[in-house]
Design a protein around this nucleic acid. Structure first.
Lengths: 205, 205
DNA sequence: CAGTGATCTTGCGCAGTCTGCAAAATTTCA
DNA sequence: TGAAATTTTGCAGACTGCGCAAGATCACTG
């Protein structure tokens, strides 16, 4: 039951990817996911509408499939790192190690960001996935900081970390300037080490 | 065009409130918003289904009506305060000034929190409203900190503030202990003044 | 207080989502 | 090759959410 890697598994993964890509293509072409129907996505991927809904509960979920997988990997990375370094560093390094800038096409990411930003339903879907991530990560944070899941501190820390992950990536994507993604992430996480309350002595642009 | 306060306005507000309350009542009775239909909510409030959708785009929105109004008021309070005190203090005090503990019934709030927590669709809806709040508040934060809307810093600050608002209120609601809501909020906001990275020297419980 | 314009409510239709179910089609493995 | 397991598919059904036009209600003026 480890990794069958049979034909079956590969086909399922391929179908899922095809559906996700179809959703993306159509959303770009029609300038918004609302203008795309589940029927169209299924047709574009060469499966029936019913099959589409076997893979994804909604077209929004299909479009954000990569994101969802990414959060899963990040969670795994975080779990590893949380055992051997401070939790804040673990978040930062796990985020950097995802290498979004190398794994995905930058223009496609920008495009996807625009689609999300312009669609209430996609914003909700993505936010929902973040909350899911929150729920899955809170135990890790509580354990790492010697607090309990219900305590205020781990929740604030985790919330801050997720906000930092999302904001830094988005910011770099919108305007990389002359910095690498890793640098931007590092900078963002460092804001919280001395307190976010007071603006940094205006070095940044 | 200031405040007509005519019969019409009052009736509309009453209908909206009635629908929202009906949604809440039914969701509680049926142990979850998913088990409630728009038809039932409309019937419970004594209007047609079509009218329900004139007021709210979804049953989730109806249930979170109070929350949505609250964020509007908080935004107004923040705008005021941001002119005369540091932005972080402005967030904290604006949050405290909402007096959730006095304006709403505590048990009802707990009940609502449970409903939200148990429902993916409600989590998404609420997250979406937070993102809306984010979009509406980012200009205030940028202005107050002498940065630009697209900069990283104001986004991190705002994100941290929203997380703090939400987490502190939820935490207090789940277990007030011997503290007032205002005290819990103050404590939560203070975490970020010295850096959230390192746990506080274990004074808290 | 009648009349007229503005606004709100309602029913109907329609496109679309999402799920359960059972019959094909396909893959796996002995 | 021949079951057994799994996937795909069509179909039916409940529900959402919105446009439209007709009817009901409210507001304002003379």
């Amino acid at each position: 039951m480890a990794e069958p890697t049979g034909l079956r598994e590969r086909k399922k993964a391929a179908t899922k990817a095809a559906l996700s890509e179809a959703a993306f293509r159509l959303a770009v072409a029609k300038q918004g996911i609302e203008a795309v129907t589940a029927d169209e996505i299924a047709a574009e991927a060469g499966v029936s509408t019913r099959t589409f809904h076997n893979y994804f509960p909604s077209k929004e979920a299909a479009l954000l499939h990569d994101f969802h997988e990414t959060t899963g990997q990040l969670l795994a990375g975080l779990r590893e790192r949380a055992r051997e370094q401070p939790i804040w560093d673990a978040f930062r390094d796990a985020t950097i190690d995802m290498h979004f800038d190398q794994k995905f096409d930058i223009d496609a990411m920008r495009c996807r960001e625009q689609l999300i930003h312009a669609s209430p339903s996609l914003i909700k879907e993505q936010s929902g996935q973040f909350m899911e991530l929150f729920a899955e990560a809170i135990d890790i944070v509580a354990t790492a900081t010697g607090t309990r899941t219900g305590d205020l501190y781990p929740r604030l820390l985790l919330g801050a970390a997720l906000v930092t992950m999302k904001s830094s990536t988005e910011h770099w994507l919108a305007d990389p300037g002359d910095r690498t993604l890793a640098e931007t992430i590092t900078e963002a996480f460092s804001y919280f080490e001395r307190g976010i309350t007071q603006p940094p002595t205006a070095t940044a642009a």
